[in-house]
């Protein structure tokens, strides 16, 4: 949220709660102080609220269908603090295909380690795992 809009909203709240006839310049001054305070407090959170330029990853899992596959991978992702942005799963002729778009921004693991952990989990549950940044999907499928 940009600064101007925030200041406008704070001023609106003040006007709603203050008695009629409050000095507009005083309201503005209080609003400005509050905005500065809010920014100092939650500046970082506000900045990541709408992350720009985040680089998402695509995780594709292919193999024979059996129970617990989705759980197996969401567990690895949760432990690494990787956010699942989107998930799509289907069965084609008894074969399980799952595609996840995940956000590794706050991951505890490096890309290489995360990829290794997911591949390792794939071996454990007997499915094939492909992990890559979304760059290629974007480039190949969007003109």
């Amino acid at each position: 949220m940009d600064r101007e809009r925030l200041a406008y909203q704070v001023a609106e709240i003040l006007l709603r709660h203050l008695p009629q006839g409050a000095e507009p310049s005083a309201v503005e001054a209080v609003a400005a102080d509050l905005v500065r305070l809010l920014e100092a407090q939650g500046g970082e959170a506000a900045a990541t609220d709408e992350p720009s330029g985040r680089r998402l990853m695509v995780l594709t899992v292919l193999g024979r269908n059996h129970s617990g596959i989705v759980h197996a991978f969401s567990e690895v992702l949760a432990e690494a603090a990787v956010d699942i942005v989107d998930i799509n799963q289907t069965i084609v002729h008894g074969n399980f295909a799952m595609m996840m778009i995940v956000d590794p921004t706050s991951s505890k693991l490096s890309f290489t380690d995360l990829k290794a952990a997911l591949k390792h989990r794939g071996d454990e549950v007997g499915v094939q795992v492909f992990v890559q940044y979304e760059d290629l999907m974007r480039a190949l499928n969007r003109i």
Partner: peptide, 14 residues
Amino acid sequence: MDYTRREILETLRM
């Protein structure tokens, strides 16, 4: 999802 299943699978096939 930003990409369709087909797009992802085609990329992997390649």
